[in-house]
């Protein structure tokens, strides 16, 4: 597999704890716009969401079988089917500019898989790929999902790794539109001792390696939220209307 990034210089990593879905999406959008302008370096957001179901633009609502009534449902600007985010799931949103040879969406997806595979290996879980079914699997059980969107070769959305996710939420949907798709988690694969924080450390390391960053900077959550106000100020772009990012749940 080709390395998607050719020694990108700096990566900022921000651990954001638990962030409401729409708020995180807004942050991503702000960062992506700023990244496209060159105002900020590549950034990896690591966070958890409160329980939420999201449907892709083309998703079939029938895959939402019997969602708990108190859980919000977003139809979001991505393709793909329905998925669940919630406590115990580590979500990674890389806002990365793909340049040069790295401008290859399939390579990028494979790289995200590699990030999760490497991190899982660090905790003794042998995970891998399944042909045609993007995501990360332990045998035929899915542990990590991927969905990305790109605009001007800047990425949004990303991956979701089930660390200690409550599997019952997945039972109320048809995850990723794959009937009979079994979901698993780091905990269910025998490492119940690891939490989202521990996994985030593994992910940080493998992400840095897979994408060959020379330098890694940690940003405080507060700093990022404050900064997000600045870069979200009107950026008079020549392109006029700014359409939504599309992302596709890879599932």
């Amino acid at each position: 597999m080709e390395q998607a990034a050719q020694a990108a210089p700096t990566l900022r990593i921000a651990r954001l704890a638990t962030v409401e879905y729409s708020r995180a999406l807004a942050l991503q959008e702000g960062l992506a716009a700023a990244r496209a302008r060159g105002a900020v370096p590549d950034t990896l957001l690591l966070l958890e969401h409160p329980s939420v179901f999201t449907l892709g633009r083309g998703a079939d609502a029938r895959y939402l079988l019997n969602p708990p009534r108190e859980v919000p449902v977003y139809r979001v600007s991505r393709g793909g089917q329905v998925t669940y985010h919630g406590p115990g799931q580590l979500v990674g949103y890389p806002i990365v500019k793909l340049e040069g040879r790295a401008r290859d969406v399939h390579d990028y997806l494979r790289c995200l898989e590699q990030v999760m595979i490497d991190a899982l290996l660090q905790c003794g879980i042998a995970a891998g790929r399944r042909p045609g079914l993007t995501g990360v699997w332990v045998e035929e059980r899915k542990v990590g999902s991927i969905g990305v969107g790109l605009r001007r070769w800047v990425t949004m959305h990303g991956f979701a790794l089930n660390v200690a996710t409550d599997g019952r939420f997945f039972e109320t949907i048809v995850p990723c539109g794959i009937a009979g798709c079994r979901m698993t988690s780091v905990a269910a694969e025998g490492r119940a001792d690891l939490g989202v924080t521990e996994m985030a450390a593994f992910i940080e390391r493998s992400f840095t390696t897979v994408f060959s960053y020379r330098q890694v900077v940690t940003v405080e959550a507060n700093e990022l939220w404050t900064a997000s106000r600045e870069f979200s100020l009107p950026a008079r772009e020549a392109s006029g209307p700014d359409p939504g990012l599309g992302a596709v749940c890879q599932c």
């Binding site: 633009r57 393709g79 969905g147 969107g149 020549a238 209307p241 359409p243 890879q250």
Partner: peptide
């Protein structure tokens, strides 16, 4: 996935015109 412009719309260089999906990754086309 979606046309962001419709017949008759004026299009300027660099403007987003469609969302394209390949193998489930999705890209805004300009």
């Amino acid at each position: 996935l979606r046309w962001l412009k419709h017949p008759g719309d004026t299009i300027r260089r660099g403007e987003a015109i469609a969302e394209v999906e390949t193998d489930k990754a999705d890209m805004i086309m300009e």
